[in-house]
Amino acid sequence: MLAAAGRTATQILLFLGEISLLVVQAFRESPGFFRRGFRPVFRVYLKQVYFTGVEALGIIVSLFLLIGILIITQIISFAGVGSAPLTGKVLVWIVVRELGPLLTAVIVIARSGTAIATELATMKLGGEIDVLESLGIPAARYLIMPRILGVATAVGILTLYAEVVSVAGGFLAASLAWGIPLEQYNQGIVPFLTLREIGVSVFKSLTFGLIIAAVCCRQGLSVEGSLTQIPQAATKGVMRSLLLVFLHDAVVTATVLS
């Protein structure tokens, strides 16, 4: 039993090592692509930002508008109309600190994580990675780096949108349902929306993006030989991304709060 636990621990450490290596590799590749392959690699990056960021904007905006409305409704119905400081504090804590980066990451995992893992697995099994290498185009630079940086960029921007929309949704509810003016609403939000809160949120969203893309790239590229491994790669990509994102969130939150 001890041996089995040791094996599992080793596998987990190896997996984390591989993920970290992919992220490091992505950053190490980024200066190189200005020298060679800028145009096609940048195109892959833009496509990734478009697919992960722009195409997910609709669902993110709708979801966070509703979340903002729900949170404000709950707080005001609980604490009353005159509780502006509490309203702001809770909204900033819940949305900016936690839900913004976390829910955005979950949506990106569901949409783009599966797509990345499936796409790379299909390419690997179809021999396309070897074809790229035989063309003198390293897979690490053409396939992995732009995906990792593209997803990180997209998650960062989506999270900002999500938070702004959520706060706006909250104001909409507060204004329409309880007649709270913008000034009073702002007084509740602005003092708590410090640079530190925004910084933590941005840090979380960017690192979530790196984790999601690296895990899904790794899962996609790990398939060997059989088509049945493609859906397995996608599922594993999703599950492991979720686990790592939540784990990372807990670590960052604990570190910041302590």
Partner: peptide, 30 residues
């Protein structure tokens, strides 16, 4: 490798790139 041309038996195209993008890919890269 950029000075070599490999003609693969099934074409060896990249599945998520269009024909034009496939043919221009090595040129754009190198």
């Amino acid at each position: 490798r950029s000075r070599m041309g490999i003609v693969h038996p099934g074409g060896g195209l990249i599945s998520n790139l269009k024909v034009f993008e496939n043919v221009t890919l090595p040129l754009l890269y190198h």
